[in-house]
Design a protein around this nucleic acid. Sequence first.
DNA 1: AACGCGGGGAC
DNA 2: GTCCCAGCGTT
Length: 379
Amino acid sequence: MSFFSDRLVAWQRSSGRHGLPWQNTRDPYRVWLSEIMLQQTQVKTVLGYYARFLEVFPSVDALAHASVDEVMPLWSGLGYYSRARNLHRAAQMVVAQFNGQFPSDPDLLVQLPGVGRSTAHAIAAFCFGVQRSIFDANVQRVMARYLGFEEDLASASAIKTLWAKAEALVPKQDGVNAMPAYTQGLMDLGATVCTSKRAHCGACPVAGDCQARLKQLTHVLPRKTRKLKRSSSTWYWLVLCRDQHHQCDSQSSIALPQLALHKRPDKGIWAQLYAFPTFEDEAALLLAWQNLGGQAGGLDWQPGFRHVLTHKDLNLVPVVAQLPSQAAPSVQMVGHGDMPLGHLEWVDVDQLIQGRWALPAPLLAWLKHSTFADTDKMC
DNA sequence: AACGCGGGGAC
DNA sequence: GTCCCAGCGTT
């Protein structure tokens, strides 16, 4: 029990986390999915998404044969949506290039889109006992403190150096038995004991030779100079365009209200998700509205609301628009900054509310809580 | 090396 | 409010 890894493995088995749904399995598909969802995302948030995803796509084969439009709604609200697109592409790669079986070699795993070096090591360690180290923020903190590593982790060379030291600490023997517990132990220690704000050294299995504790540096390490810069808030105007052809009146049979969506561009915020036509200023909105044949007074400005992102605040203003009867239901619309809009998709409000389309979380939340979602009030 | 990318939680 | 979190891809 003298080695770091021995102590950590024993601690994980006695005091670590064991009941999480992606634990107690060596199914690479399930482990991989959990690792991707957990990137920059907390356990509590992931739980629901993970269960729903596996219910719809229980295997890598099922995921590979789906369309990306079936995958994205299951990610709606989770953030970092490129993860979902990479997940889908990676599933197709596993089927096409690895015969449906995840490889155990981290050098091959890292070729999958969305799988970086740390995630590749996690999959290899959990599923195949490969003796390589993960290196997420938890491990960086644990290692910087345990080793008394004082270099600035904003530097790439410092990261490289510390990662190499982490690799040197992995269990030397019986990887298949030890690596899953060891890897989980690193994460658990960082999440529950050696936490960012405070190190609970009394509960730590390796406090005895922790250099940060011995030098009273736990509150200083890890050093990381990079500061988060928040840019100023931005405004978006969102057009909620009703379909005239489905408007309710006393003569028509029951028709479902529909709204126009368009697919966001490949890059930038909400990339490739579906959103209401979005404009960065009122002039662009009005120009597009004019191009559509809209009339003055056909727009109803709703109260705006704020949505906070990591790097900036969004001020979102919904504008309800009544499309003129002569306009085609599908129209090429220009005026989204310098980005041409594609054809609009007309979608039942029901389907939006039920999460069948991949809307950004704030748009879906607003729709659900607005009177606009109430069919009666549309007539 | 710096930056963009969502959302939620802790304090 | 600020900072953090099972990071990765792009420039």
